[in-house]
Write a protein that binds this DNA or RNA. Structure first.
Lengths: 203, 203
DNA sequence: TATATCATGTAATCGGTTACATGATTAA
DNA sequence: TTAATCATGTAACCGATTACATGATATA
């Protein structure tokens, strides 16, 4: 009976609307992938669900933008109630992160497979996380690019100046990079440890 | 149509049975909480589901242990097919970790709340993760405790000696600790940064 | 007396994922 | 010509969470 009316992803969508101004579900999905992927991923179907939910809550409103060559754009903008919900969220306690990583689980039971298989898994992880680290570093440098579509219509945020808003984004981006580095350090060390155990397996 | 027959949590339960020998769903839940919580948490209802799933796959078998004062214990043990499935899992590619952290998301949009609220969120995160780090460190030292219930019935694992099995567990436990440390470092730095911005807000 | 633990499950709900669906434009 | 992108959604499924359920024992 006490189900929350909104979830982290709801506020993720709402925050993007607050930060970058009105846009469509399609735009939101792309922004999500670039700006929020490190801490919360979302499929486009989920974003559309959240937009519908917030519309019912009165947190956003939709306006049709007619297009001749493509389907109409449904542009969503945040309402005053939405802004208040976003601020109220900050005062609520947060669910604490629970890792759910198949690779870690697999390595845990690595003793039930030949060491070469464990090493292969570690190498696959290294390849992926190296690429992601690279991408996060590029995102950090490209962050200002995404600020162009923001309309500065009368400074709607009473809590922070524009430069302070950016600070939070780059602070979290730095966490994402630190996390990937920690993960990679561990992967390399673990790989070395696994290969050291069976030197004849390494090629 | 191509849904997998098993999921990471399935192999988590299977791995515990392989490692510690036959036990009940209740035992599995407790072991899960102590040994696998850092990389994959599970509710007891989920564990019972997985046991049913694996029974249908022929990966485990159940034997009733009658008890007078309590309900009968249903003790599950791994079959040969289960052992093969566990090994085959190691050769399959892994889903890559996707963080889903409400606190990070909240901080990202911290500019829509007063800095004191952001600082409060960071402090709550610090309190929780400090405690978790402590718990992980204790778990690492207590790891040998959980090895007592293991029955060494004819060395059923051809890939690793008993000491090597333990190595993987402590390797992953070390990751969990490294992760918590990275998270805490970031929390402290971010808190300092937020408090430095508005010195009159800090109390 | 009341809470916690032992011990086992079922049922309902829901966020998240995957697949399905449409149709035009544009670049390889 | 084929694939990708723009643009918008719906439907089905499922892992995971929460709540419901039972009943004895032990501890505060």
């Amino acid at each position: 009976m006490d189900r929350p009316e909104a979830y982290p992803i709801t506020y993720g969508v709402l925050g993007l609307l607050a930060f970058w101004g009105p846009m469509s579900g399609y735009d939101l999905k792309r922004l999500f992938d670039h700006a929020l992927a490190p801490m919360w991923a979302a499929a486009h179907s989920q974003i559309y669900k959240e937009l519908r939910r917030m519309q019912e809550l009165g947190w956003v409103e939709m306006e049709r933008e007619e297009q001749e060559t493509r389907p109409d754009r449904k542009v969503y903008h945040m309402t005053q109630a939405g802004r208040e919900a976003l601020a109220a969220w900050q005062a609520q306690p947060s669910e604490v992160l629970q890792l759910r990583d198949e690779l870690l689980l697999k390595i845990t039971f690595g003793s039930f497979a030949p060491p070469a298989a464990v090493a292969a898994n570690l190498r696959a992880g290294i390849a992926f996380h190296e690429q992601r680290l690279l991408q996060y570093r590029q995102n950090l440098q490209q962050l200002p690019v995404y600020q162009q579509p923001r309309q500065a219509s009368g400074r709607p945020n009473p809590y922070a100046s524009e430069s302070e808003e950016d600070r939070y984004f780059s602070l979290v981006a730095r966490f994402a990079i630190a996390f990937e580095k920690t993960y990679l350090d561990w992967l390399y060390e673990t790989l070395a440890s696994v290969e050291a155990e069976k030197p004849e397996e390494s090629k």
